[in-house]
Simulated assay, not measured.
Amino acid sequence: MPGFIPDILTTIAMIGCAYTVTGAVLAGRWRAPPPPRRDARAWPSITMLKPLYGPEPDLAAKLNGFLDQDYPGAIAMLCGVADPADPALASVPARAVRMVSAARHGSNAKVSNLVNMSGAADGDILILSDSDMIVPRDYASRVVAALEAPGVGAVTLPYAGLGETGGWSRMAAAGISWGFLPGVMVGLATGMAKPCMGSTIALRRETLDAIGGFARFGDLLADDHAIGAAVREQGLSVAVPPLIVTHGCTETGLRALVAHELRWNATVRMLDPAGYAGSLVTHPLAWALIAWIAGAGGWVLAAAIACRLILAARIDYVVGRRTAPLWWLPARDLLSFGIAVAAFFTRRVDWRGARLHMADDGRMTAETETH
């Protein structure tokens, strides 16, 4: 093997280490200040939109968490399903409104659900979020305060992972907390990321109307990203306040974990092919291992492992819990790298019972309809 190849691989690994250390430093910024206090009459009303599908662990507790808020204004919740026999309905709080409608508005079942719910949402502010999210009691206050800043059209939030169903779910959570979350932090700090995530999208009713309503996004797989882009087209920003919420991971096996993460990676690759290719450098442990196999010194591998362990420990400290055993990190990192590479060759993904074909323009077609 030519002698320059180990040097190139070592350089890539060191760039990844620098990225990792930057993420560890930036993590300290995500300490939320106390939420502002105002007169109760000044707080706008909120409608929480919750598209549901199928059973989930602790779903009732998660939904109640969005209602049990230290928020002076009125909060309502709409929970929508497409099937009246959907088991998720059993977990809907009594205080929430159940909406059942099978009307389809494109290939994206979640967006169809949102379209069906949005007509009944009468809050000043709409907050949509995935059903697997867990939020603190000051969530609503912080989101509304961020939305009311000048020039802000929407608010979104980064999230950490929490394993809820055993070892594989903790491995999935580690991928979020130790991989995805630092990437968001670095991307925001450098201005390279313009996120809008399904963890939270808060916007005013007039903003939603101005961007064409939810129906505009009915055939898009990355609907959350597209909503953010549409808000920015109006000359408004998408704010990301210093609050990290939690994604409950429920994977029970390797196959489910890979299918979920492959869909996510393929979506990111579809949205930004060049940026996604560049993001491969953010996997220093994998590059260091390849460099070591190619003949580089063992110090490269040791440095990459040390940097990644520091970042994982730092993230766990910031979110206030151990995501997974730190000794899992090498296996988790190599799995993440493998999935990242596989996403370059993925054109079909599984999503909630449907097999979807992904087009280069971000649109999707369902090969098997969800029942």
Rank of each mutant, 00 (worst) to 15 (best):
P2Y: 12
M14Q: 15
M14V: 04
M14D: 13
Y19W: 14
R38M: 09
D39E: 13
A42K: 07
M48S: 07
L49D: 02
P55G: 13
N64T: 11
F66H: 12
D68I: 03
C79S: 06
D83Q: 05
P87W: 02
P87C: 09
A88H: 01
S91I: 00
P93E: 06
M99G: 03
H105Q: 02
N108I: 04
V115T: 02
D122N: 07
L126T: 01
L126H: 03
I127G: 05
D132P: 13
M133V: 14
I134M: 14
D138Q: 05
V143H: 06
V144P: 00
A145M: 06
P150K: 11
G151V: 03
Y159S: 14
G163N: 04
T165P: 08
G166N: 05
R170C: 13
M171P: 00
A173W: 01
S177E: 05
M185C: 00
L203Q: 10
R205I: 04
E206Q: 12
T207H: 02
L208K: 04
A210Q: 04
G212D: 10
G213R: 04
F214Q: 01
G218I: 06
L220K: 00
L221F: 14
A222Q: 11
D223F: 07
E233M: 13
T246H: 14
H247S: 12
G248Y: 10
R263L: 15
T267W: 06
Y276T: 05
Y276N: 05
A286Q: 07
W287M: 07
A288N: 15
A291F: 08
A296G: 08
G297A: 06
V300Y: 02
L301I: 10
R314G: 03
I315Q: 08
Y317P: 00
Y317H: 13
A324F: 03
P325L: 04
W328P: 14
A331L: 15
G338K: 01
A340M: 15
A343C: 03
F344Q: 05
R347Q: 01
R348H: 15
M358A: 07
D360H: 10
T370I: 15
